[in-house]
Amino acid sequence: MNSNSPQPDEQSGHKPNNTALKLVIAAVAMFGFGFALVPLYDIFCEITGINGKTGGPVERVEQWVDTSRTITVQFITTNNAGMPWEFEALQEEVEMHPGAWTQVKFWALNPTENDMVGQAVPSVSPSEAAEHVQKTECFCFDQQTLKAGEGREMPLIFSLSPEIPSHVKKVTMSYTLFDAGAFAK
């Protein structure tokens, strides 16, 4: 790297270029670490449910239904900028017991003259409820393609696990619809 370095001090016994090489490797490793933060963050979010992300499809299991508790689940939808689709939940809210499976429907319509691809991004509030939302089917798992003028009902089948903390009485499930044309698969 550098042939003109002063000679290392005899007494300290290190070779500067060795130290420098180690530090360069450390710097490169930290650059990699920056990228490693991306999957680490996802894993961390999935475990802790922080930031309200819900996980992918689960196998439907019949579980204990806690009929002593009723939780109100609200559905809200948002269109991100530049997403002209009509997008709404067909029911504003449902009441359900933890452990029971429920199906709800959302409606999307592409009013434009072009075929478009949309991606719904889920978020749950309070965030501590997120890890207790179990979905077997959700339109948010995949991109949704709608032809010009096409409308579609989209199902969501989910339950809240019976372990959901007892102080949670209302859960808000939010879906934001993005134009995913740039990321179409």
Partner: peptide, 14 residues
């Protein structure tokens, strides 16, 4: 004005 212009700051005002 109704539908905005995707990819720009022009929002859908519908």
């Amino acid at each position: 004005v109704l539908n905005g212009k995707p990819g720009t700051a022009m929002q859908a005002y519908a």
